[in-house]
Write a protein that binds this DNA or RNA. Structure first.
Lengths: 178, 178
DNA sequence: AACTTTGTACAGAAAAAACTGTACGTAGCG
DNA sequence: CGCTACGTACAGTTTTTTCTGTACAAAGTT
């Protein structure tokens, strides 16, 4: 095995690990591989180059890269005189991590808070309604308690996300230094 | 709509949100629904009761609940005189959250650290090999830098996970109080 | 203005995953 | 020890997701 092949193999192993890892959080392995490929590039790639690199269709590259951009894991780059769109991987993994979970968690918190507050309100109404059976009310009461503490948790999660977003988290858990 | 229906509707909305939320992190919607159903139960359920509750096969309940147990979101409960396995949802979401991401992140860190350290070693070897082209060595050098800083990041992530596992995180981001 | 090039929408094909039913091993009970 | 009840492995089916190729709109070039 010559040097170039060894280099390729070393990269391939890491790309594999990266894509498996991303897969744990609901990102397709293909998208993970694309990110990995971009990560090892010295300069930004065009869609056609990605297509070449991964042996997939251009359409797939287009949708995959858009996915990565939405996750802020990859950014579009402008280069003078180049007509094609260029993309490169965000090199700072601390940033990538923070963005990724900020995006995901905020989405989740929003979905759940909205639903829970609405349901909480309805359950309160139920308690105030004289026509409702007291067995049902007892259940509603339990649910209200559960939802209330769940909402507390989501408030906490929102604060955690804030600390990711602002970088405050690094005051508590300092970045590793070489 | 009577009280019972209203109660059901309020729960259903929340279960829906929960399952969508879990889905963001690579958990099936069905598994999410199961967790949601368990969350609102007052007492633990058997596989047959879950099957009834969700209108799915017992086999699915078995695999789904095992999934939730692996994630520590649901626990098996023992009850005197009852032969069937009983399961109930972990009620403390702070705990659930910490466990969930501890499990996921540790897995990810391990996968990546192993691969990266191995590749890092190989790349170092490459640099020390006289027969290797200097262009290839230049690339290897860049890769080594990338991997080194990626590994630093994973060390940090490990410390973050530690803080989740020990509960230290709550010193920095205190739990919300009612 | 005509001609290229580039990126993406969309429909259909291919691949992956979730789900079910049967069959079976194991454990409790009489 | 035989019988029943329970949970799960496994194979096959259904559903969902991913991927591709074609077609087209938008922007750039001559």
């Amino acid at each position: 095995m010559n040097g170039e092949q060894q280099l390729e193999k070393a990269r391939e192993r890491v790309i594999d690990a990266i894509s498996k890892n991303m897969n744990l959080y609901g990102v397709t392995e293909s998208i993970g591989r694309l990110y990995g490929a971009l990560y090892f590039q010295e300069s930004p790639l065009t869609l056609d180059e990605m297509k070449e690199e991964l042996g997939m269709s251009k359409t797939s590259m287009s949708t995959s890269v858009r996915n990565l951009v939405d996750l802020k894991m990859v950014g579009k780059v402008w280069k003078k005189g180049v007509r094609k769109d260029l993309y490169q991987a965000e090199p700072d993994w601390y940033q990538t991590f923070a963005d990724f979970f900020t995006i995901k968690w905020r989405t989740g918190v929003t979905i759940n808070m909205t639903a829970m507050e609405k349901s909480l309100y309805e359950l309160q109404m139920l308690l105030d309604d004289e026509n409702v059976n007291h067995m049902v009310k007892a259940e509603a009461k339990l649910d209200i308690e559960k939802l209330t503490s769940a909402i507390d948790y989501y408030k906490w999660l929102n604060r955690l996300v804030d600390s990711f977003e602002t970088g405050e988290i690094f005051q508590y858990i300092p970045k590793s230094t070489k």
